[in-house]
Amino acid sequence: MFLGKVVGSVWATQKEVGMEHLKLLLVQPIHADGTDAGTQVICADRIGAGQGETVIVSRGSSARILISKDSPVDAVVVGIVDSFEYCKE
């Protein structure tokens, strides 16, 4: 899992079977201090995250099983972060 910031939405009128009712978001992975942590990822979202929110993203088979074991999804928003504490040593 990783922390990310929702930076956009992705619209696709034609989707593979199993993705028909999924909202897709563009998420920028971030470090705990808020700086960018890699390449943006397209994530499926069933919990209603929005632009600018910090989210928790799960990837791979752990993400896929949340939708359907046969789904072509690789990343899923699994939480919207209310707050977190980062203690730099």
Rank of each mutant, 00 (worst) to 15 (best):
F2M: 15
L3N: 01
G4Y: 00
V6W: 00
V7Q: 04
V7F: 02
S9F: 10
V10M: 09
V10D: 01
W11A: 13
A12H: 09
T13L: 10
T13Q: 12
T13S: 15
T13G: 14
Q14E: 14
K15C: 06
G18E: 03
G18V: 05
G18I: 00
L22R: 06
L24E: 05
L24P: 07
L24W: 06
L25C: 05
L26I: 12
V27S: 05
Q28I: 09
Q28S: 13
Q28W: 06
I30P: 06
I30Q: 07
A32H: 11
A32I: 09
D33P: 09
G34T: 13
G34R: 11
G34L: 11
D36P: 15
D36M: 13
A37P: 03
A37L: 03
A37T: 01
G38S: 09
T39H: 12
V41I: 15
V41Q: 06
C43S: 13
D45G: 09
D45W: 02
G50L: 04
G50N: 11
Q51S: 12
E53M: 06
T54K: 11
I56A: 08
S58G: 11
R59M: 06
S61E: 10
S61Q: 09
S62Q: 08
S62K: 12
R64Q: 07
I65K: 13
I65N: 07
L66V: 01
L66N: 04
L66C: 01
K69L: 06
D70I: 04
S71V: 00
P72G: 06
P72H: 05
V73C: 03
V73M: 01
V73E: 01
V73G: 00
V73Y: 00
V76C: 07
V77L: 03
G79R: 01
G79W: 03
I80Q: 01
D82E: 14
S83V: 10
S83N: 09
F84Q: 05
F84T: 05
F84E: 04
E85L: 13
E85M: 11
E85T: 15
E85A: 13
Y86T: 11
Y86S: 10
C87S: 14
C87N: 14
C87R: 15
C87W: 10
C87L: 14
C87V: 14
C87H: 14
K88E: 13
K88R: 15
K88A: 14
